[in-house]
Simulated assay, not measured.
Amino acid sequence: MEPKKKNAMAVTLVFGILGVSLLIASFATDHWVKSSPVLKRSTQSPANETDGSATKYTGNITFGLFRGYRVLDYGIGPRPQDINVVCSGSDGVCAWSNSSDPAKRADYMKRIVKFVDNVKTNGTVKDLIDYGLFNFGLWVSTIVMLALGIVWGLVSLGFTAFNVVGKPIETITGPAGLYLWNGLAGTFSLLGALLYVGLFTKDLATNVLPKDDVDIGWDSNDRTQLDYSFFFVVGAVLSFFVSNIILVVSGQKLSCSYNRAAEKELDNGMILY
Rank of each mutant, 00 (worst) to 15 (best):
135 N>I: 04
135 N>Q: 04
135 N>P: 01
135 N>W: 00
139 W>K: 06
139 W>N: 13
140 V>I: 15
140 V>P: 00
140 V>T: 14
141 S>H: 04
141 S>F: 13
142 T>I: 08
144 V>Y: 01
144 V>W: 05
145 M>R: 00
145 M>N: 08
145 M>C: 12
145 M>W: 11
146 L>Y: 01
146 L>M: 10
147 A>Y: 00
147 A>N: 05
147 A>Q: 03
148 L>P: 06
148 L>K: 00
149 G>Y: 11
151 V>L: 11
152 W>D: 12
152 W>G: 03
154 L>M: 13
154 L>W: 01
155 V>C: 07
155 V>I: 15
155 V>W: 00
156 S>C: 13
156 S>D: 15
157 L>G: 01
158 G>K: 06
159 F>C: 03
159 F>G: 01
160 T>N: 05
161 A>M: 07
161 A>H: 04
162 F>T: 10
162 F>Q: 03
163 N>E: 11
163 N>F: 00
163 N>W: 01
163 N>P: 04
164 V>Q: 05
165 V>L: 12
166 G>Y: 00
166 G>C: 09
166 G>D: 08
167 K>I: 13
167 K>C: 08
167 K>L: 09
167 K>G: 08
170 E>N: 14
170 E>Q: 14
170 E>W: 10
170 E>L: 14
172 I>S: 12
172 I>P: 04
173 T>M: 03
173 T>F: 00
173 T>G: 01
173 T>R: 00
174 G>C: 04
174 G>R: 04
174 G>E: 07
176 A>Y: 11
177 G>Y: 02
178 L>N: 14
178 L>W: 08
179 Y>G: 00
179 Y>M: 03
181 W>S: 07
182 N>R: 01
183 G>Y: 10
183 G>K: 02
183 G>M: 09
184 L>W: 01
184 L>I: 15
184 L>N: 02
185 A>E: 03
186 G>D: 12
187 T>E: 06
187 T>D: 10
187 T>W: 03
187 T>S: 14
190 L>I: 08
191 L>A: 15
192 G>K: 12
192 G>W: 06
193 A>Q: 11
193 A>V: 14
195 L>R: 07
195 L>Y: 09
195 L>S: 11
196 Y>M: 06
196 Y>R: 03
197 V>C: 12
198 G>L: 13
198 G>M: 13
200 F>V: 09
200 F>M: 08
200 F>E: 09
200 F>Y: 14
200 F>R: 01
202 K>N: 15
205 A>E: 08
205 A>P: 00
206 T>W: 05
206 T>Q: 13
206 T>P: 02
206 T>D: 09
206 T>N: 10
208 V>N: 10
209 L>S: 09
209 L>T: 09
209 L>K: 06
209 L>C: 12
210 P>C: 03
210 P>W: 03
210 P>D: 05
211 K>Y: 10
213 D>L: 14
213 D>W: 14
213 D>I: 07
215 D>P: 08
215 D>E: 14
216 I>F: 01
216 I>D: 01
217 G>Q: 12
218 W>K: 10
219 D>A: 06
220 S>Y: 07
220 S>Q: 02
220 S>I: 11
221 N>R: 15
222 D>Q: 11
223 R>L: 11
223 R>Y: 05
224 T>G: 05
225 Q>I: 12
226 L>A: 08
226 L>F: 04
227 D>L: 09
227 D>A: 15
228 Y>W: 15
228 Y>G: 11
228 Y>T: 15
229 S>Q: 02
230 F>T: 13
231 F>E: 07
